[in-house]
Amino acid sequence: MSNAQQFDTRPQGEIPVESPLAYSMQRSGAPKAKAGTKVTMRERPFLGQLTLRGGAIVLDEALREVVGLGLPGEPLGLVQDQAGERSIQWISPDEWLLIVPGGEEFDIERRLREALGDAHFAISNVGGGQTVLELEGEAASEVLKKSVAYDVHPRHFSVGKGVTTVFAKATVILRRPSEERWELVVRRSFADYTYRWLLDAGEEFDIAVEN
């Protein structure tokens, strides 16, 4: 074992929980779809998110065993399971982001720690610190062009790619899990700014928010 402390942050009982956008949606509203809506935004809150650090070979092996999904083979790669519920994204040569359905992360972390044994690695639970926003629709890439300097043209940003980059005056992890859908992994404290920015940038495309 790596002699690190693991801590399950999820309560057992029924405890009220608030997504990072709870306040924002109440304050800034969540516009409904209109006839001209060309981009739709939705939050996927409360997912399990683990930052994985370590060598690619040992992590890959452990992940295949525990999650059934290996590491992406290339920098900036994003792999996901068939249902699209579990994904692993390259963040850095020794860092990956694992996103799983909320509630799975503690058990996965425990089993990964077991599988990794004495290898040098680190796993940090970051699920409370970031949330996932989805953008979908024909104008999604136009909204992104207003927001990120990164090139989102399909020739450059293909499905199965993900990057950490600047978003307006904040930062974001931007990923493309499918042709029509973009995911933004946003830090909790910047979520309100990001949300307001997207509402404003999407105004000309009648942006809608689905809860």
Binding site: P75, I91, S92, P93, E95, V163, V166
Partner: peptide, 9 residues
């Protein structure tokens, strides 16, 4: 240099 908003390397 450091790729601060990126891979942090």
């Amino acid at each position: 240099w450091v790729h601060a908003v990126g891979c942090r390397k």
